[in-house]
């Protein structure tokens, strides 16, 4: 099988150039990034990252120098050597000799962070944490899986944390629950809570503002058309005052009230709250998405709540005798004294 080498030299590379290429050349297309690749790599220049991405997209098949040269003709042999050596030194790439041809393979970043001197316990815990991916894993589950006792596990976790191989993340769902995951992973949305959380605090005001602005947008759309609504048929008019989540998102982004980048999904969640407020209606479109429009409620506020009794917190205790009674009711007195006509 292939034999690992520590580094390469220009001579080797030129030699490799002369020999017939056996590796099947595949058209190289930018492949979607794996979750591991999401973590930005520190200390590498653009070219190196390009090459690394290419290698990562090929996975275990490996890439020969030819392919790199073809994909990035702007890089000369010297550059390539420099880049590869840099990557190898950083532990991101391994060099293999595959039937006489030098092949580069991207190393799993986790593997890259393996530091010599880890004992068996550390390795076991590390693998367990690695398996949990970006969802993280709770300390109790690690204990159950690894069969280590609590004190020992704490020590191992501390040591791994110290080596910057894993990190602890607090989940928004349960504030005190620490979740462990690999150091360079971006925590999952379900843990960070997405756009609505900053440091595990739910940003209630932010949601409220978005809620208001989304409604404002839909109401504005309706008002803009109000003068010439009868130029169109009612059905057409309804379509004109409706907006899809994407349009609302565009409006919100242009407003610039959000520091984080909102996704269409986020806006849909906000629109859903408006729907449950009864302020907008949604219509199912042919492509399975919804369009939203502002609507009026069917009734004005009813007479019941215009009178203090309708909103009275102690109405259940109210009767003709006792402490709470209409004759001496403070709420009624205040309301009757009020000059302003509330009806």
């Amino acid at each position: 099988m292939s034999k690992r080498k520590a580094s390469i030299s220009v001579e080797e590379l030129t030699n490799g150039d002369e020999s017939p290429t056996i590796i099947k050349q595949e058209p190289v297309t930018p492949v979607k990034q794996e979750p591991f690749a999401k973590a930005p790599i520190v200390g590498l220049n653009e070219d190196a990252e390009k090459v690394l991405n290419l290698l990562q997209s090929h996975g275990t098949a490996g890439v020969s120098d030819d392919v790199i040269a073809k994909c990035y003709p702007e890089l000369g042999p010297q550059d390539r050597v420099a880049i590869i050596n840099k990557l190898v030194a950083a532990g991101k790439v391994g060099i293999f000799n595959q039937k006489g041809v030098l092949v580069y393979k991207a190393k799993d970043p986790a593997e890259g962070t393996q530091i010599k001197g880890s004992n068996v316990e550390e390795k076991t815990v590390f693998t367990i944490v690695k398996e949990a991916g970006n969802k993280g894993i709770w300390i109790r589950d690690i204990r159950l899986k690894s069969n280590l006792i609590q004190t020992q596990l704490n020590k191992v976790l501390k040591s791994l944390e110290g080596k910057k191989m894993i990190k602890a993340v607090n989940s928004v769902a349960a504030g005190k629950k620490k979740l462990y995951m690999l150091y360079d992973l971006e925590p999952d949305r379900s843990i960070t809570g997405g756009a609505w959380y900053s440091d595990q605090d739910f940003e209630s005001e932010f949601v409220d503002i978005l809620n208001q602005q989304c409604l404002r947008f839909l109401v504005m759309k309706k008002e803009q058309l109000a003068d010439k609504i009868y130029d169109y048929g009612p059905l057409e008019a309804q379509t004109l005052v409706s907006a899809t989540a994407q349009e609302v998102l565009k409006f919100i982004s242009e407003l610039g009230i959000s520091k984080v980048n909102l996704a269409e999904e986020d806006i849909k969640v906000i629109l859903e709250t408006l729907f449950y407020d009864g302020k907008i209606e949604k219509t199912l479109l042919a492509d399975g998405t919804y369009s939203y429009r502002a609507v009026e409620m069917l009734l004005p506020p009813p007479g019941f709540v215009k009178m203090p009794c309708g909103v009275c917190p102690v109405i259940r205790k109210c009767s003709s005798v006792g402490l709470v009674k209409p004759k001496t009711c403070e709420y009624l007195t205040d309301w009757l004294k009020k000059e302003s006509e509330i009806f």
């Binding site: 019941f304 009178m307 009794c309 309708g310 109405i315 109210c318 003709s320 209409p326 004759k327 009711c329 009624l332 009757l336």
Partner: peptide
């Protein structure tokens, strides 16, 4: 509502 109506009348 009955209660409120009664309240309004007795007031």
């Amino acid at each position: 509502c009955y209660q409120a109506l009664g309240n309004a009348m007795s007031r």
